[in-house]
Amino acid sequence: MSAGSGTKELFELVAQLRAEGLAVGTDRVVLAAEALAGLPADPYRSLRVTLCTRASDLPIFDAVWASRSAAEPVPDEVAAGTVEPGAGTAAPGAETEPPTGQPAAAGGEDELTRRDVVHLTPAEREEIQRLIALLVPAAPRRPAMRRVPSRTGRIDAPATMRLMLRNGGEPSRILRSRRAQRPRRLLMLIDVSGSMRAYSDVMLRFAHAAVAVRPGTTEVFTVGTRWTRLTVELRARDADAAMRAVAEVETDWGRGTRLGPVLRDFLRHWGGRTVVRSSVVVISSDGVEYGNMAVLPQQVARLARLGHVVIWVNPALGDPGYRPVNPALDNSLPHVVAHLPGHSFEALRELAGVIAR
């Protein structure tokens, strides 16, 4: 495919990639078309970034690209994913700039934690996964009905009377009590549709960190075209073991999005239980929705009434050129207390802080 290629060539490339096993969703094709319109000079980089969602996709893409570019072969080092096309040998003493469309090398852990997880190398992704496991995403405590002895607080008349009776009726000390504190429940609803494929893994690892902190008061569900409970699988001590257990669960990975109807069905089953009531609810989704746009805002409003607060995590916010995708998300945001990105480790650390408020 040469510079200025049309829609037909893009669709042919996508069809060939799908035939080779790449799960290229419609949303990725749209992004690729927009990237070609913005960067017409060299389509290789923009198509490689937009059509590939995992490191394992890159060799397949490069092989397909080479087969389609017989007139202009891709060097072996490019096919191996180590050098970008057009990157020649720099003159002695000359500085080279990172290829357009590719992130510059990280200048330390601080820079790495701020980068979008989509642009990380496998080694960098492993480092971010290690850091995610160290997070402590725990909801704050809330007052319980039970009261406990305390040096301050209101007078505990029954306990004071019992103490007086033990002392022969003499008032020796006034006892006080306060309401006990118990952990507030945390409910995570993670979108695993095709448009969220690049971020589903890190959000599930974030959910595993939350379950590891408070396994008894944290619930995790995936949503897309249906809801699936993954709390039990995420209780594995090791994060990688938990991810393997999650992968074995039959769910709707990488499919479409019916977030409004799925939340409605979820609330029919779980809305009356402690899983939802007075919980901190975290919805991780880019808000891509099909069908009736009025359903999603209604269900988010219902979640806000049943739960303590609703937090919306939208990785698309990490893109400087982000624009709202549909009115369903816009009309849902008035019912949430925070709309956060979640596209990098730094954003996930911010999310953990908001959950703990």
Rank of each mutant, 00 (worst) to 15 (best):
Asn292Pro: 07
Leu31Phe: 14
Asp286Pro: 07
Val148Met: 08
Gly108Thr: 13
Pro215Trp: 15
Glu127Cys: 11
Ala71Cys: 08
Val117Phe: 00
Asn326Cys: 00
Val337Cys: 06
Ala159Phe: 08
Ala139Gly: 03
Met203Ala: 03
Ser5Ala: 12
Glu233Asn: 08
Thr100Pro: 14
Leu17His: 08
Arg264Gly: 03
Pro75Arg: 05
Gly107Asp: 06
Val29Cys: 00
Ser279Thr: 00
Glu109Ser: 05
Ala35Gln: 13
Ala123His: 03
Pro73Thr: 12
Ala207Asp: 04
Pro99Asn: 01
Glu84Asn: 10
Ile190Glu: 04
Arg162Thr: 10
Ser46Phe: 06
Ile283Cys: 13
Leu317His: 00
Gly107Phe: 15
Leu112Met: 12
Val276Ile: 08
Val192Thr: 04
Arg114Gly: 06
Trp253Lys: 03
Val29Glu: 11
His343Gly: 00
Glu346Cys: 13
Ala247His: 11
Gln129Pro: 11
Arg54Asp: 01
Ser5Gly: 14
Met145Gln: 07
Ala63Pro: 12
Tyr290Glu: 03
Ser284Asn: 10
Leu348Arg: 04
Ser46Lys: 05
Arg229Ala: 02
Lys8Ser: 12
Val336Glu: 02
Arg305Met: 14
Val249Ser: 15
Ile155Glu: 06
Arg184Val: 14
Arg258Cys: 05
Glu346Met: 13
Val280Tyr: 01
Pro92Lys: 13
Arg28Met: 09
Leu36Val: 00
Ala41His: 10
Arg226Gln: 14
Asp238His: 06
Ala66Ile: 07
Leu267Glu: 13
Val83Asp: 13
Thr274Ile: 07
Arg273His: 08
Gly353Tyr: 12
Arg205Asp: 01
Phe11Pro: 15
Val117Glu: 00
Thr50Asn: 08
Leu267Trp: 05
Val78Gly: 13
Asn326Met: 03
Ala338Pro: 09
Ala294Val: 04
Ser195His: 13
Pro43Phe: 06
Val276Gln: 08
Leu22Pro: 05
Ile60Gln: 02
Ala207Ser: 03
Ala32Asn: 06
Val262Asp: 05
Ala79Lys: 12
Ala352His: 00
Pro122Leu: 05
Pro215Ile: 07
Met243Lys: 10
Pro183Met: 01
Glu250Ala: 10
Glu34Thr: 15
Ser56Phe: 03
Gly101Pro: 14
Leu134Met: 15
Phe345Tyr: 04
